[in-house]
């Protein structure tokens, strides 16, 4: 089944703060393991806008650093899996997600 993942970016890493990220990576993983990546640049940082983007893009998961509880609960309510407190380069994180080895709180710089 196709999957969509939304990752707020800071350079090549997951953004440390969900509410302060202006660049977002939207990854579509096809059932045949093909990846389609798209970077979206937001006009300003806003957690509300990111939540709206995640829901409108039908994201299945959000991978982020620090996120406020209200937005976390909102995304969870929308049945979007949130992997928060994740630290590290996006490439490594996506690889871990592909191998079903990703969980909240993982630090890929210590791995």
């Amino acid at each position: 089944m196709d999957k969509k993942i939304l990752i707020p970016l800071f350079n090549d890493d997951v953004a440390p703060r969900f509410d302060l990220a202006t660049d977002v990576l939207l990854v579509e993983i096809k059932s045949n393991s093909d990846y389609y990546e798209r970077v979206i640049v937001l006009p300003q940082a806003s957690a509300d806008d990111l939540c709206a983007l995640a829901t409108s893009a039908n994201a299945d998961a959000v991978i982020c650093g620090g996120i406020g509880d209200e937005h976390y609960q909102y995304l969870t309510w929308k049945e979007i899996t949130v992997f928060d407190d994740v630290i590290g380069p996006v490439k490594k994180i996506l690889e871990a997600h592909k191998n079903a080895a990703l969980s909240a709180g993982m630090n890929f710089y210590n791995a």
Binding site: R17, D19, G68, D69, D84, D85, G105
Partner: peptide, 9 residues
């Protein structure tokens, strides 16, 4: 401000 590990700002 910071966001701590309990998701509190």
């Amino acid at each position: 401000d910071i966001i701590d590990r309990s998701r509190i700002k």
